[in-house]
Design a protein around this nucleic acid. Sequence first.
DNA 1: TGAAATTGTCATCAG
DNA 2: CTCTGATGACAATTT
Length: 615
Amino acid sequence: MSLKAMSAPRSSVFTFESTVHSSHVLGRLDEQRRRDTLCDVTVVVEGQSFRAHRSVLASCSEYFTHRISSLTQQGAVISLPQEVSVAGFEPLLKFAYTSKLLFGKDDVLEVRNSASILGFRDLDEACFEFLLPKFSSSTQGSALFPRKTCCKKNCKRQLSDDGIGIYSDEVLLDEKAVKPVAESPFQQEEAFLFNKSVNSQLGSQSSSGTLTPVTEETNYIFQQGPKYRKFQLACGKETCFPEKSVNNPLTVISNDCDLSCSPCCSSLNIKNESEVEFSGNSSSTLVRQSRGEADDSRKFEIHDRTTEADIIKAETDETSTVEREVAEHLVKCQGSDWHSTQPNFHDGSCYQTGSRQSGHGAPSEWPHVNLSFTTSCPFIQDLDQGKCLRKGADLSECEGASQSGVSSFNSGEDGDTETETEGDSEAYTRERARQMQLPFSVDWIVDQSRNEFQQLLKTQEFTREQLEFVHDMRRRSKNRLAAQRCRKRKLDCIYNLQCEINKLKTEREKLITERSQLSQLKLKTCHNVTALCQKVCSEADLQPDQLQVLAKYTSPDCPLSTLIPHIDTLLSQPELQHRLQASLSAPSMGPHQYGASEQAFSSSSKDAFTGDGPH
DNA sequence: TGAAATTGTCATCAG
DNA sequence: CTCTGATGACAATTT
C-alpha cells in the first residue's frame, strides 16, 4: 500500500492506493466462477462447458472481446474453435481468474496454441518460447534460443551446487542450465526460471519518497563474471552475497519500493524446493516448477505477481547465519528510517555480513563532508545503484569500505586478494588511491550526479593528483557501466530478433498446414465433381456440344477427361468435331452466352440431378 | 594450448 | 566548452 501526498495549492489531497484490492477482486471473481455465481456466459470446448463472466473473459482475451461484444442475451454460449482444446483452454481460464498459468509438459503446446488463438493478454510469448525448447529435445532448443552469457556460468555452477538455476532477465536464457538431459537429472530438471525483465519492474522509490531511476545494474547481482570468479572463491562464499543469495534459500520478496529498489533484495525468492521467484516493483512473472514425489508430472506455473499483496519476507536457512544476517539487516533497514549523510556508509552497508567484516573503522574517522543532497537511505540507494554488486572489483571495494568505514582507496584492507586477482591496472589504481587517501569510494563518486559531483569538487579540496584520479575513475566507471549496458542491449536485440524469427517460423508452419488442408479439400471437391459429372453423363446422355460446354467449365486442375473418361474419344469423332467447330465459331460466345447449348446442358444436368429428366 | 567468451578500457562521436 | 552516454575496437583474462 502506499499513501501518496498529492501536491495541492492549499489543502493536501491524499490518495489511498491498495495494492491488494485488485488481487482480492480477482480472487472473489474466481470464487464466483467456481460457484457459478453471477456467471453470464458458457464457453463450450470440445463439448465441455465452462461457466465464466463475460467481463473477465473479455478483459483477458481478444477473441472473447470480439465474440462477447456481439452477444446480447443472457446465458450466452460461446463455442470455441476446434483448434482450442480443453487441455489448452482450462489453464487459460484459470489464468484469467488467478494470474497463474499452470501447465505441464504434455499440454504446454495446447496451452500456447489456445492462448494464441484466443489472443490471451498478459501471457508472454517469450515464456513459452523459453520453456518449449526445454521440453523438446535437447538439441532442438539450443539452436533456437541464443544463450545469454551474463549469468551463464553462475547458472551452471548453481545448478551443480544446488540444483537451482537463475535467469535474472528475460533474455537470460541458457539452455545449458535447464537442459533436461544432464548428468544430474534431478538437479538440472529443477532449474527453471522465467522472469520478465526484472529491470523494467524495478522502478523504485527511495525511502525519502522520491523516485529513483530504474537501474539496469540490478541484473549484475547475477552477473558476476568469470573474470572475478577467482576473487569470489578467494573471498569466500560469505562475502559474496550475490552468489549466496542465489544458492541459498534466502528469500526477500518485496513488491514495494523499499526493498525492491535494491538488487540485493530485488525480489529474488528461492524456495527450498524447486521454486524460484522473482518479483518486481510493479509486476513480475515467475515460473514455479512444482514437483510431485519421484514423478514426471512436473508442472509449471506462470505467475503474474502484478496484483499480489506487498510481501516483505525473509526466510533464512538455519545453517546460514550469514544470510540470516543479511535478511535481518534488510528488514531492519526497510523498517527503519535510517538516513545517513555519510557517503562512505553506502559502500559497506550491503556487505556488512561479509566474513571479512571487522567492524573497525568508524564514520567519525572520516573527513567531514557536507553532503546535504544525500538524504535517502544510503543502503537502499547504494543497492539501487547496484554498484556494490556489479562486479568483483567493486564488490571488493565495497567490502573494504564496509570494513574500515573509509574508502577502499585508502583502507588498505583488501589489497592482497584483489591484487592477485585483478588486472595490473586495477592494482595500480588501488595503489594510487591508497597513496592519495581519498575520502570517498569510487562507487560513491560515480553515483553522484553531475551537479553533485561538481558541488563535491567545490566543497572538497583535492590535490591536482587526486582530482585527476577522481575524474579518471569516474569516467572509467561510468564508461564501464555504459559498456555493460551497451552489450546488454545488443544481446537483447539479438534475442528479440531470434524471437521474431521463431514467430515467423511458426507462422510459416501454420500456413503450410493450412495450404495442405486446402489442397486436400480441393482434391475431395474434385472427386465429388467427378462423381457428379459421371453421373450426369451416364444418365443425361449429353450431346457433343453439351459436352463441349461442360469442358469449358472445367479447370486445369480438374480436367474434363478426368470427369468423363471417354470425352476425348467422343470429341474426336468427325461429325462431332464439325458441330463443335460450328459451335465455337459462333460470335460472342462467352462463358455466359452459350444459349441453347448451355441451356440444354443445364436442363439435362438439372434433370439428371433432380431425376426429372426424360429418360 | 588454442579458441571462444567475457570484461574493462580507450577513442570517438553526438547530444 | 564540459560532461555524459553510446559504441567500435582492442587487450587482458577466464573458461
